[in-house]
C-alpha cells in the first residue's frame, strides 16, 4: 500500500485536530493560533470554536493561566511562536509547572503541553533563532522532546497531551515543510526513549531535530565501508543514556551533533556522561556543533554558523582518518528551509 506523505506542520495540525475531537478537556491557545500558527493550526478555530483561543501578547500570564487550568484537570496546549517569547513565561514553565508535583509531595499532576518553535529561519538572527535546548534540558520536572520527523511529531504530540506532566515540545521551525510518512489514525510515541534509526557497527552518531535531518543527508556523503549507527535522541529531558551507552559499547565510537552552540550543548552533556563510564569506547568522542557566539543574521556569516551535512560527514570521516570532503553547498540548501521527503 502507498504510504501517506505529509508535511511536519500538517502532522502537527492533524494531531491537534484529533486531540481536540477526542478530548473535550483539551484546548489550544497562543497568539495568532486562530490565524493558523505557521500552518500548524489552519482552520481549527472554525472546527473547535471554544477549544481554540487567541491570546493577548502576554506570554507570562497566558502560560501561567494554562498551568493553572492544567492543575484543575484541563489539557491545555500552548503555542509559543518563538522560544525567545516563551522565556517571558520562565516562572510559569521552570518554577511553577516543573516543580508543582514535586513540591506538593506528588498527586498534583500538571498536564500542560508547551509547543515552542525554535531554531534557524532565514534572516532572523540573534534574537529570533535561538534554540536554547540545554536550558529546557537542564530544568528538572519538565519532559522535553524534539520531534525530528513528521511521524515523530504527531506521535509525540499525542503522547504529550495524554501525559500527566508538563511536556515541552521544541519544534525546529526549519523542519515545518519537511515531508514524511504519517499514519492517519492516532498513535503515540514514547516521550523518554531515543530511537536507533539505523543500525551500524563502527560509530554511534547521536542527533536530534534539524541536525537529525542533516545527519541523514550526511550519511549519503560518506563511503559505505563506514558503518554508522544513527540515534535520533527524541528526548533531551530526560536523556535516554541507556540506548546511547548500549550503542557505544558496540561501536566503540561516539559523535554528537547539535545545530546550536557547542557550549553546554546536549552533545557535550552526552559525551560527559559517556566519558564517566566509557565501556567499550576506543576513541575520543567528537562534537559537531555551532560556534560559541550568537547567531548572526547575514547569510555570509550564518553560512559558517550552522553545521551542514558536509561538516557532519567530515566529522565522521576524520574519526576514521579518511580524506575530508570539500563541497560548496548551494545558497538554497544553506539558507532556505528544506522541503525534502524523508525515507
Amino acid at each position: 500500500m502507498e504510504q501517506r506523505i505529509i508535511k511536519y506542520a500538517e502532522a502537527i495540525k492533524e494531531a491537534t485536530k484529533q486531540i481536540l475531537e477526542s478530548d473535550k478537556s483539551a484546548f489550544l491557545m497562543g497568539l495568532g493560533v486562530p490565524q493558523g500558527a505557521a500552518g500548524t493550526a489552519v482552520g481549527l478555530k472554525d472546527l473547535f470554536p471554544t477549544q481554540v483561543l487567541d491570546t493577548p501578547t502576554s506570554e507570562a500570564a497566558l502560560t501561567g493561566m494554562a498551568v493553572g487550568a492544567a492543575i484543575s484537570g484541563l489539557h491545555p496546549m500552548v503555542y509559543h511562536e518563538r522560544v525567545e517569547f516563551s522565556l517571558l513565561a520562565g516562572d510559569a514553565i521552570f518554577t511553577q509547572a516543573a516543580k508543582w508535583n514535586y513540591m506538593f509531595g506528588g498527586d498534583n499532576p500538571v498536564p500542560v503541553v508547551l509547543r515552542i518553535a525554535v531554531g534557524r529561519q532565514w534572516g532572523n538572527g540573534p534574537q529570533h533563532s535561538q534554540a536554547l535546548y540545554s536550558l529546557f534540558g537542564a530544568v528538572r520536572g519538565l519532559k522535553v522532546v524534539i520531534p525530528s520527523t513528521p511521524h515523530m511529531m504527531k506521535g509525540l504530540l499525542i503522547s504529550a497531551v495524554k501525559d500527566k506532566n508538563p511536556v515541552v515540545i521544541l519544534e525546529p521551525r526549519w523542519l515545518y515543510q519537511v515531508k514524511g510518512h504519517v499514519p492517519e489514525e492516532m498513535y503515540t510515541e514514547p516521550l523518554d526513549k531515543a530511537r536507533v534509526v539505523k543500525e551500524g557497527k563502527d560509530v554511534t552518531v547521536v542527533a536530534y531535530g534539524d541536525a537529525f535531518v542533516d545527519t541523514l543527508a550526511a550519511l549519503k556523503l560518506i563511503p559505505q565501508d563506514i558503518s554508522v549507527e544513527l540515534i535520533d535522541l527524541v528526548s533531551i529531558n530526560p536523556i535516554d543514556y541507556q540506548t546511547i551507552a548500549k550503542s557505544v559499547e558496540k561501536t566503540g565510537r561516539l559523535l554528537c551533533v547539535d545545530s546550536t552552540n557547542s557550549a553546554f550543548s546536549i552533545g557535550s552533556e552526552i559525551i560527559a556522561k559517556v566519558a564517566e563510564n566509557p565501556v567499550g569506547l576506543t576513541q575520543a568522542p567528537v562534537s559537531v556543533a555551532a560556534p560559541d557566539v550568537p547567531v548572526p543574521t547575514s547569510p555570509a556569516l550564518s553560512e559558517f554558523w550552522y553545521p551542514t551535512k558536509v561538516d557532519i560527514a567530515n566529522g565522521i570521516l576524520k574519526m576514521f582518518g579518511k580524506p575530508l570532503l570539500d563541497i560548496k553547498l548551494p545558497f538554497e540548501e544553506l539558507h532556505l528551509a528544506p522541503t525534502t521527503t524523508l525515507e
Binding site: 507570562a60 493561566m65 492544567a70 492543575i71 491545555p76
Partner: peptide, 16 residues
C-alpha cells in the same frame, strides 16, 4: 505574583 495567572487558569477551568 505567580498566583494570579495560576488562579486565572483555575477559574478558567470553572468557566470552561
Amino acid at each position: 505574583g505567580s498566583v494570579v495567572p495560576l488562579a486565572t487558569g483555575v477559574a478558567f477551568e470553572q468557566k470552561y
